[in-house]
């Protein structure tokens, strides 16, 4: 039964994802056709290489890093709708943590999907409302008083998320956290490549976990 559920998820997931691919490619295509303007090869290639050289690598790495965390349906949905590190992955993690489901189990997969879908619905509606009401919302969004709150969403998010997961497996957490603190403090500009450093953290933590597990220290 589990296998057939997973098979169905992959079947429908592929259909949705290929449809998303077609839709995303259609947007610039339709706009170019209606405007009667197409990118000139030279400027396009320069802009594309400057962008893809970083983001093809980052997004490819993200697929292999995040998909085991998000589960099957969560991955199909999360990667179509984006905002992974700042929203979808933390949503899934906090939902799994709150229900204390076994990571990697089918229950975790299902809870992750529910969380990502719920999160996507809210975000999509807020973005649409925000686009419609951007003019009246601009003073709020640009408010100097609120700026520190908006600037510090990542610390506010990962402080709470971090303590919840570190408390459960502090022995595994020490090495990757120590490595990342030293790296980020010592090497300027690393904030720009945090997406690339996530799998580095994952490799360190999984290696440490394996060693500790083999030594029966976990």
């Amino acid at each position: 039964m589990y296998k057939s559920y997973q098979d169905r998820v992959h079947f429908y997931g592929r259909i949705w994802m290929v449809s998303a691919l077609v839709m995303m490619l259609s947007i610039p295509l339709i706009i170019s056709i209606v405007l009667g303007t197409w990118p000139e090869p030279g400027p396009f290639i320069r802009g594309f290489i400057a962008t893809a050289i970083v983001f093809w690598a980052v997004t490819t790495i993200e697929v292999f890093t995040f998909s085991p965390m998000l589960g099957s349906a969560g991955t199909y949905l999360g990667f179509t709708t984006g905002n992974l590190t700042n929203l979808k992955v933390p949503s899934a993690l906090q939902a799994m943590e709150a229900l204390e489901v076994e990571a990697g189990s089918e229950k975790a997969d299902v809870i992750s999907t529910i969380a990502i879908a719920s999160s996507t619905i809210v975000t999509t509606l807020i973005i649409a409302l925000g686009a419609a009401l951007l003019l009246p919302l601009t003073p709020v969004l640009e408010s100097e008083v609120l700026q520190p709150a908006f600037d510090n969403i990542i610390p506010a998010l990962f402080g709470a998320l971090g303590v919840a997961f570190i408390a459960k497996a502090w022995k595994i957490a020490i090495a990757p956290i120590a490595f990342m603190l030293v790296l980020f403090l010592a090497v300027p500009g690393t904030t720009d490549i945090v997406g690339v450093l996530v799998p580095v953290g994952v490799i360190i933590s999984v290696s440490v976990a394996r060693i500790l597990y083999k030594q029966e220290k976990l």
């Binding site: 965390m69 971090g162 990342m180 904030t191 996530v198 799998p199």
Partner: peptide, 16 residues
């Protein structure tokens, strides 16, 4: 293994 993956991601953002 899954917990370690979560912690790997979290560690990168703590460094960030």
């Amino acid at each position: 293994f899954m917990s370690a993956m979560f912690l790997g991601m979290i560690s990168a953002f703590l460094g960030y």
